[in-house]
């Protein structure tokens, strides 16, 4: 009963394809790898030059600026607590990994989302790709990433860029498409170009929705840190991973709690940044 159809060697094809890419574009990947590594490690070094207490205060002030005083207070206490537990440096490493990934997810995801919002054909390409990206277990991205970028922080960044990008794309498309039809008509009736319509009306009005996407991307990227540590990305994720493999429940809990604190801070701050001041009326 088996072997009615010959089994197609998908796995082999993919291996061959990846091999070919590695051989052909090796130098390109090396360049990208060095670049990303430079960014992540460079920012960790920079951040580490500031004394932890001062940095916690600075972050708290930043949180106050874009959100509320309560969130700022939580930021301050949370970060000082992480410092107290002794996870300051791994926290910085994780933060650098997450923020770098999110940064690239946004600078790719937002333009793709805008493009998708404008063209039905573009959506026909983008939507299935997004479905694929979101249903594929995050783990799977690690394997080719290792091939292209070796082990360390870079494959972690690449995998989390891919993993965290879909919500930004989807919600950018959604937000822009949700702008009421009569506003679009008004921009057209006054003779706007496509770019004027987008930049002056659609994108500003879609901002809260786009920010919700950014928020989700940050959360997904955070959820990747433990997985990324399996390919050698340093940081809080690595601490958790090591604790799990060595069955150190206490350490695992402490490191996990630190991740949660950072997650809450990033979540609340970005949520508020999205809501703040729409048309002079808060909310």
């Amino acid at each position: 009963m088996d072997k009615i159809l010959p089994r197609l060697p998908f796995a082999e094809w993919i291996d061959n394809g990846v091999d070919w890419l590695v051989v052909t574009f090796g130098t390109v990947f090396d360049g990208i790898s060095d670049f990303l590594k430079g960014i992540v490690e460079g920012s960790v070094e920079w951040l580490d030059m500031v004394p932890s207490i001062l940095l916690a205060v600075l972050f708290a002030l930043l949180a106050w600026f874009v959100s509320t005083r309560r969130i700022a207070l939580f930021t301050l206490i949370g970060l000082l607590f992480i410092d107290y537990l002794g996870y300051w440096y791994p926290m910085l490493q994780m933060l650098a990994l997450v923020l770098t990934s999110v940064f690239f997810a946004l600078i790719i995801g937002i333009p793709v989302g805008i493009w998708g919002s404008q063209q039905a054909t573009a959506r026909k390409i983008i939507n299935p790709l997004l479905d694929l990206m979101q249903t594929m277990p995050a783990f799977v991205y690690l394997l080719p990433a290792i091939f292209f970028f070796n082990i360390g922080v870079v494959p972690g960044v690449v995998a989390s860029v891919i993993f965290s990008m879909p919500p930004t794309i989807r919600l950018t498309m959604l937000g822009i498409q949700q702008v009421p039809k009569d506003l679009i008509e008004a921009t057209e009736a006054f003779g706007s170009t496509t770019w004027q319509r987008l930049s002056k009306v659609q994108i500003p009005l879609a901002k809260p929705t786009i920010m919700a996407g950014v928020n989700q991307s940050i959360m997904l990227s955070l959820s990747m840190v433990v997985i990324a540590s399996m390919v050698g990305a340093p940081g809080l994720g690595e601490e958790v991973y090591r604790a799990v493999t060595q069955l150190k429940t206490g350490v695992g809990f402490e490191a996990g709690l630190s991740i949660v604190i950072v997650a809450i801070i990033l979540d609340r701050v970005t949520q508020h940044a999205g809501k703040k001041k729409q048309g002079g009326i808060t909310k």
């Binding site: 009421p180 009569d182 506003l183 008509e185 008004a186 009736a189 006054f190 002056k200 009306v201 500003p204 009005l205 729409q278 048309g279």
Partner: peptide, 11 residues
């Protein structure tokens, strides 16, 4: 052009 539901830019 003037629209039925005003179509003002809320932002």
């Amino acid at each position: 052009m003037v629209f039925q539901n005003f179509a003002l830019f809320p932002h």
